[in-house]
């Protein structure tokens, strides 16, 4: 049998943790294993999944994006406002995605052209977008457009009739975006270049990788995914809220790290990130099933898991050398 490449060890650990959590939940609570719970898990966490895909690329390249939560809040309130002003949904989505792409490009350009630290630029982006969301609306806005009230529901794919379970639009977006992200990472020149930059930027320059274009492209893509995640979040929330999704960047980064992507860059797996999102979702579902635990435990659990997986990566990494 071929020996296991050490870079896959975190990925296997992730899969084991995921299965263990799921099995544990099934043993502890009678309804935990039902199809409906699992589908809800995918649907409710879809927006985190979409945002985490963008974060995966950024982190593989050795950077970081702290603006994810604010970007989703901004997008959700922008869509709510546009629909409130009688924009057609398609137009509202197109405009939001364009804005996401544009703001990501600006972040990438600041980081690459002026050699500013990524955390600083995206921290600035985080506060800027948070402030801008409150400019758009100081309060939460419900979305009452027929597309949200009816179409989103009818677009769910029925799976079983009895009990009636459907695969919601949000979960569909999650699956499609994961597949697209996996193709970008594994089968395109752009994807290869991201890994090259993350392993060693100076080597990438010497190899003739277009570092500047790629780096700006990565942040543009992350901005696009954040905006898309905001769209998905509105399907789920049916509203826009400028104060929501605070701290979501930790969830995104934790999903990426739990999924076996090295926070130092160069190594990472898109399917791993999807598993990371599911693990965080499982923890949240377990806390809900438990009933009397404060929902703040979710955030604490995300932090602890992130820490555990970083430590695991360090241990595996130090064995390799």
């Amino acid at each position: 049998m071929k020996k296991l490449d050490p870079k896959y060890i975190p990925l296997f650990a992730t899969a084991i943790v995921m299965l263990a959590l799921y099995a544990g939940g099934c043993l502890a609570y009678p309804n935990f294993g039902s199809l409906r719970v699992f589908i809800n898990l995918l649907g409710d966490n879809a927006f985190i999944g979409v945002a985490a895909m963008g974060a995966t690329f950024v982190i593989i390249s050795g950077g970081i994006d702290l603006s994810v939560g604010s970007a989703i809040a901004f997008t959700s309130i922008l869509i709510a406002q546009l629909l409130g002003h009688h924009w057609p949904p398609a137009g509202a989505f197109a405009l939001t995605l364009l804005i996401g792409l544009a703001y990501g490009t600006v972040q990438g350009a600041l980081i690459h052209l002026f050699a500013l630290p990524a955390f600083l630029v995206t921290l600035g982006g985080m506060f800027f977008l948070r402030g801008l969301s409150f400019v758009l609306s100081p309060e939460s806005l419900a979305i009452k457009h027929p597309f949200y009230l009816q179409t989103v529901r009818t677009m769910a794919i029925p799976i079983t009739q009895r009990p009636f379970v459907t695969f919601p639009l949000t979960a569909q977006c999650f699956v499609v975006v994961t597949i697209i992200a996996a193709i970008i990472a594994g089968y395109t020149r752009f994807g290869r270049n991201i890994y090259a930059i993350g392993s060693s930027e100076s080597s990438a320059i010497l190899m003739g990788v277009p570092v500047g274009q790629t780096k700006i492209g990565i942040y543009a893509l992350a901005g696009f995914f954040s905006a898309l995640s905001g769209c998905v979040a509105t399907f789920y929330m049916q509203s826009g809220n400028p104060a929501s999704f605070v701290g979501l960047e930790l969830d995104a980064i934790a999903s990426v790290a739990i999924g076996g992507t090295l926070l130092t860059g160069g190594v990472g797996f898109v399917p791993g990130t999807a598993m990371g999102v599911i693990i965080l979702g499982l923890i949240q579902t377990l806390i809900t099933f438990q009933g009397n635990l404060n929902s703040w435990w979710t955030r604490i659990a995300a932090g602890v898991l992130l820490l555990l997986f970083i430590t695991l990566q360090k241990v595996v990494g130090s064995k390799r050398h």
């Binding site: 970081i64 930790l250 703040w296 955030r299 932090g303 992130l306």
Partner: peptide
């Protein structure tokens, strides 16, 4: 533990508010 400062302190930034709650 040699964890990047941004990540290490981000954990406390978000999880710590949960502890405060």
């Amino acid at each position: 533990f040699n964890i990047q400062p941004i990540i290490a302190t981000l954990i406390l930034m978000v999880a710590g508010r949960g502890v405060a709650q």
